[in-house]
Amino acid sequence: MEKAIKRYAPIFVLPTFLAFTIGFIVPFFQGLYLSFCQFTTAKNAKFIGFDNYIRVFQDETFLDSFGFTVMFAIVSILSINIIAFALAMILTRDNLKGTNVFRTVFFMPNLIGGIVLGYIWQILLNCVLSIVGEPLLALNSTAGYWGMIILMCWQQIGYMMIIYIAGIQNVPEALVEAAAIDGATSWQTLTKVKLPMVMPSITICVFLTLTNSFKLFDQNLALTAGEPRHATEMLALNIYNTFYARAGAQWKGLGQAKAVVFCILVIVISLIQFRATHSKEVQQ
């Protein structure tokens, strides 16, 4: 049986592979090629070598956006994961009633799209800011930064919480009981027993929040649109603005080159993170 499956594997894989080739591999390499070109439309590209890449690293807005994105990623990864893990701990306790309701409620923000969330939070935050007499979001990069952190926490905590709950529920009861018999405090049980056991969940959650923070676009566009003066512009929005908000062929290739740099950056950073946390996982 297994042999038969193996023999026909290429046929089973074919539809997905075709879709993947058309939808991802071909445009990816086309994009890679275009990043070395000056062009207005994709079929009318002129090869110019590494010029675009040189300009990427001369472009201050790109470097500023990178700095802002890193700042955002650090704070949002920490806050999302810590809060999500804490919620998961609380909602896996046996003596708490209505945990399913709470899980559903916390998960729900994740079902709303980023653009919609961005606009809703823009209205909310602007109301709060005008009540406390601070400049509104479009003039206030600090508020824009924290607004985005709040928005992302609100949206992603529920999702990460579900993954953590699955991990915590998988910690064998026997281990926890054994620890209790050995006289471990609840803090020791958490750090020495539960945390190592849920390490696979931590790997995946940190990975998801890391890539989501770096790729963040919709929420950024809707909440602040990079205002004031590109101070809250993250990498993805910077690329978009380079490509679409500028007139002239010289900008298209630059935007494309930025996108390639960005893609490599996200892959490298997430691979490093994956190795770092994956090595801490323990096998039962």
Binding site: I22, G23, F24, V26, P27, F28, Q30, G31, L34, A42, K43, P200, S201, T203, I204, F207, L208, T211, K215, F217, A236, I239, Y240, F243, Y244, K252, G255, Q256, A259, V260, F262, C263, V266, I267, S270, F274
Partner: peptide, 28 residues
């Protein structure tokens, strides 16, 4: 979990360069 992770990683690359590349794909 690893499968899910690889899937999101790839989806990530797709959207990061996607804005520019969707067009040619549609065009074809």
């Amino acid at each position: 979990l690893s499968v899910a992770m690889v899937a999101t990683l790839l989806a990530g690359c797709g959207s990061s360069t996607g804005a520019a590349e969707e067009a040619p794909a549609n065009d074809a």
